[in-house]
Amino acid sequence: MTRESYINAGLTFLLVLAPFWAWSMGQAYILTLCTKVAILALAGVGLNIALGLGGLVSFGHAAFFGIGGYAMGILASHAQTFDPIMDWPILIEGTKSMPMIWLVAMITSALAALLIGALSLRTSGVYFIMITLAFGQMLYYFTIGWPAYGGEDGLSIYVRNIFPGLNTLVPVQFLILSYVILGFALLFSARLSRAPFGLALTAARQNADRVETVGIAPFRLRLVAFVISGAITGLAGALFADLNRFISPTMFSWHTSGEIMIFVILGGVGRLYGPVAGAALFILLEHLLGGVSDYWKIFLGVLLLAVVLFARGGLIGTLAGREVGHG
């Protein structure tokens, strides 16, 4: 085992332990914080596939996070009012079933990622950063101006959606659900990075010309990575909306894109557990510093600056060193 895998195991242990500790201390809100960490980490796992493996600096992942959230909001609000989403040419009704919502969230955000990626990947470098940002902003302003689902005010969903066999309104059950999904996403991400596809993607990041020379088109690799990445972030958006039972255009704002990026970078770009470490640290800081000062974001800013300037490779990179060679 490498040092990184010990750190990953330690992090898993801490994340699993935290709810037990919270329960024994009688501090139920910690469960919600842990759920939030898991869901935001999931969004980061999505971005990490594009950013870490593919080297695609997307500043517009809020688009997929928001689409996932709105998929949940639209389906659940129609189910809430027993009003079909459309009745022509085929009848589509709302649903409160989580697996169905997740499927819709992933498919719609994957389709959006396919479209955005196909257009954006024609550019590179700083133009790619900016065009992804532009697509995110486009959707942000669209949802603000779209009155059907609350417009700027957002939309509340009164009862959390249903998962067969569970009572999702019990914090522990929703927490376990989020942990399990995060676990699957991590497993998938780990497999992906070792699969031929992941290796080719990594190679395309390091040297696109060589990949092209051996007969693989970098554009298609990147597009597929972007779609997978968008779908996972979309799933996180649906879960996040379910956690808060609320959706609003803020999910699409560029701050959200920035924060998802922060999770990945704080933890360590391209590291399997980077997003988990980053999201956990972010929420922990928000929780600890938010209690000390109203202006806690100053400290977050200073810390982030310090990580970028001095601790390259993020939390996991600093702890584990460069032995895995994620260049």
Binding site: I298, V302, L304, L305, V308
Partner: peptide
Amino acid sequence: HLDQVLATFALILILSE
């Protein structure tokens, strides 16, 4: 560019707050 985006995002947080 990634480092630049992040560091200047951090500056926004510091300057705004």
